[in-house]
Design a protein around this nucleic acid. Structure first.
Lengths: 217, 217
DNA sequence: TCCAATGGATAGTCAAACTATCTAAAAGTA
DNA sequence: TACTTTTAGATAGTTTGACTATCCATTGGA
């Protein structure tokens, strides 16, 4: 396959394919001459994976490169790779920690995570996200403890157990790994979308005015 | 309160406060002279709300303005406002629809959403997200039908019902509205963070190699 | 043969979210 | 009152991320 064909097959412009090549997301094709290389189905698959991570999973190019590098490294276990995906959280800007309230939120969030008995590294971005959430709720006037997270933790626990159970533990590493990463990233988008839709559904039951603009929703 | 004081109290630079003022996210202060205005606690609260939506909820400035405008419009019901938050989905880039496979994914996603019996507008971004997810899974080699979403829909349904139940239906509109928006946006971040943490926990059980880098995670 | 396509390098674009500078005037301070 | 600081408002500049476009010296294919 030539670039132009790869481009047509993937729906991604040649310029963008070259960009992914430059950025190290896509391996180079087999060089057949000084200015010619041929690409195989693996390249097409890789492009789709890149687009899934960037466009569906909202990973940045840098995060995508890290995730792909982990997938490619045969020395890493599936668990290690999941770790990369987990650490590639979209946000986690460390808003907390700056103020005393922020530091308190961070301590509360850490304590909550640890109380779950899940081993999570002290630097896991998810901790910062929880701390930020807690800080935001408090600054907006809600007097909440870390236990507001409890129902979500139960849910997440059950969900993760179920999701990981669908991944065969004895399949070839490549398949396992890709299934795990895809599952983490695309079903996150699915979950979020369905939750918002469900909010719309249930709020109609509780709050809708018969003649408001909501009637058309 | 003067800008400088508002800045100190909120931790947001004067330049950024001016930016939010220009962008219409923050209402102007009470003018006391040609070049002087005073700000109250409501402004501080508004700033915190802005930062929560943008930094915790990952809304863009434009989406944040839309959400705030909806919150401010007394003609809108709580349900209408939830709709704005729902439509402010971070992604939904309409990847599908371009190809035949994409169009099929879109039809499947729509059919699934409609089968749930939730009323969702035909243009709801969440539909596009689901279609994109379905398309990505299929292009990556999984032969999946829209029923892969079913467990997530059940979960989302239960979750949304529970979340909305915590909002008092008879409280003042302003409180209801803010509680709904904050709940949608910040607990989404919480849910995502905890799910990733739970993935790490459960993957350790299934995939961890005793001596890999995972040992330190 | 000769024109379109290619790899590789470099530069340019565009949007988003700030950040900085400037101006005239009002406020605080000694 | 003289002087330094702060302010609102306007305008311009910066930074980052993700592409997108140009150039050039080959090649490949009609």
């Amino acid at each position: 396959m030539k670039v132009s064909e790869l481009s047509r097959a993937s729906g991604i412009s040649v310029a963008t394919i070259k960009f992914y090549l430059r950025e190290g997301l896509l391996p180079a094709g087999d060089p057949t001459a000084a200015n010619q290389a041929s690409y195989g189905p693996a390249h097409l698959h890789r492009l789709r994976l890149i687009r899934t991570l960037t466009h569906v999973g909202n990973l940045s190019v840098v995060q995508t490169r890290a995730a792909l590098a982990a997938i490619d490294d045969p020395a890493l276990s599936t668990h290690d790779i999941l770790g990369v995906a987990i650490d590639a959280l979209p946000h986690a800007l460390e808003r907390a920690d700056a103020s005393e309230d922020g530091a308190q939120a961070r301590r509360d969030a850490d304590e909550f995570v640890d109380s779950l008995g899940w081993q999570a590294s002290p630097g896991a971005p998810a901790r910062a996200v929880l701390a930020d959430a807690l800080l935001a709720l408090r600054q907006l006037g809600r007097e909440v403890g870390p236990d507001v997270f409890a129902p979500y933790a139960d849910l997440a626990d059950a969900l993760a157990a179920q999701e990981l159970a669908t991944i065969p533990a004895d399949a070839p590493r490549d398949e396992t790994v890709e299934a795990a990463v895809i599952g983490t990233v695309v079903f996150e988008a699915v979950l979020v979308a369905l939750r918002r839709l469900a909010h719309g559904h249930h709020s109609a039951q509780r709050f809708a005015t018969p003649n408001g603009p909501a009637a058309s929703r």
